[in-house]
């Protein structure tokens, strides 16, 4: 008897302060509900969340937009001059958008071009690599958990560590040149000062660093595909390639879409590991949009926060479009599922 009553007594004891608070707020909440109705209560309960969202997301966005309409090198808004859309006009003043050197802000358009090609190539290669990895990890391998951990491990590393590791591998006196020299007698090659190699290296390194995360999402998708479909296909004697195209890929489509959109957004925002690995060089061949914004707003002599803010607003627009695309596709699939 006593053992049965102890937990309930403890529960009652623990609930005492809760009941006390509830009694305290009960009357004003009832009053509020009477005055505003059910709709008002929804707003009341959403208010704390909206307040946090407003302070930490919406307000910085608005401040950033205001900054983009100001000029000068001062940081405080009160010391900055309103210039309207001048910063945007400066970014868009170009002879030809395909020739960055004809633009007033050539570094911005170089960064836009670099980011565009980086996104296209990195996302495509990332999806293919992650898919192949997930397909392999989904098989009955020996030490499967170990291999899953191995592929996921780079995701756990800080981007700075990733950049440094690969810098030590790729620099003139790095590990790669040492191996090539030891086993092939090849003269040291400066991978990080060759424009083409450096661009390829940033793609390769970012795939290495993030692929495990996307492979994990795809692996989860693969494991959710009912086994009986594969068994039926096997009984029908379907070729493995056909199984992949007709069963695996269509049923993996929702996960693939998530991966594509997440990888796209992450690729547009690329900065940290590349900044450590190449610093945006050689020249400006790996200067991506986020680094341009950082350098313009924070790192160059006589910083220009207004121009950096305008560039980040434009980048934000691209990210919003990508997010809306993700939401749209998600809804479409949801509706398909309901039908």
């Amino acid at each position: 008897m006593s053992t049965a009553s102890s937990p309930s007594r403890l529960g009652a004891l623990l609930m005492t302060p809760v009941h006390f608070v509830m009694r305290l707020i009960d009357a004003p909440v009832r009053g509020l509900q009477k005055a505003t109705g059910i709709g008002g209560m929804a707003a009341f309960f959403l208010a704390p969340n909206m307040l946090i969202f407003g302070i930490f997301v919406l307000l910085p966005l608005v401040i950033n937009f205001v900054y983009s309409m100001t000029g000068g090198t001062a940081f405080f808004l009160s010391e900055r001059q309103f210039v309207g859309a001048d910063q945007y006009a400066r970014l868009f003043t170009c002879g030809s958008y395909l020739d960055p050197m004809s633009c007033q802000e050539d570094a911005f358009w170089t960064a836009v071009g670099n980011t565009f090609w980086f996104v296209i190539l990195q996302v495509a290669l990332m999806i293919v690599t992650a898919l192949i990895t997930a397909l392999i990890l989904n098989r009955d391998l020996a030490a499967r958990s170990f291999w899953r951990a191995v592929f996921f491990f780079p995701v756990l590393l800080s981007p700075v560590v990733v950049g440094l590791i690969w810098k030590w591998i790729l620099q003139r006196q790095g590990l790669l040149n040492f191996i090539l020299y030891e086993f092939g007698g090849t003269e040291p090659y400066t991978w990080l000062t060759d424009r083409n190699w450096t661009f390829a290296a940033t793609i390769g390194v970012s795939i290495w660093a993030h692929m495990g995360f996307y492979a994990l999402i795809l692996l989860a998708g693969l494991q959710a595909i009912p086994k009986d479909l594969y068994e039926a296909a096997e009984m029908d004697g379907t070729r493995p390639a056909r199984v992949f195209w007709r069963i695996t890929l269509p049923l993996l489509a929702p996960n693939l879409l998530v991966v594509v959109v997440l990888a796209l957004i992450r690729a547009v925002q690329i900065f940290d590991e590349v900044y450590v690995l190449t610093g945006g060089g050689p020249g400006t061949s790996t200067l991506y949009l986020t680094q341009y914004i950082y350098e313009t707003g924070f790192a160059s002599a006589l910083r220009n926060p207004g121009l950096a803010a305008a560039a980040s607003i434009l980048m934000g627009v691209v990210l919003v479009v990508l997010t809306l695309f993700q939401l749209g596709i998600g809804r479409k699939q949801e509706n398909k599922g309901k039908r």
Binding site: R172, G279, G280, G281, P282, A299
Partner: peptide, 14 residues
Amino acid sequence: SKDVWVSAAGTTYR
């Protein structure tokens, strides 16, 4: 040496 000067973009010190 080309390495030092082309190994970064912008004003980065090397």
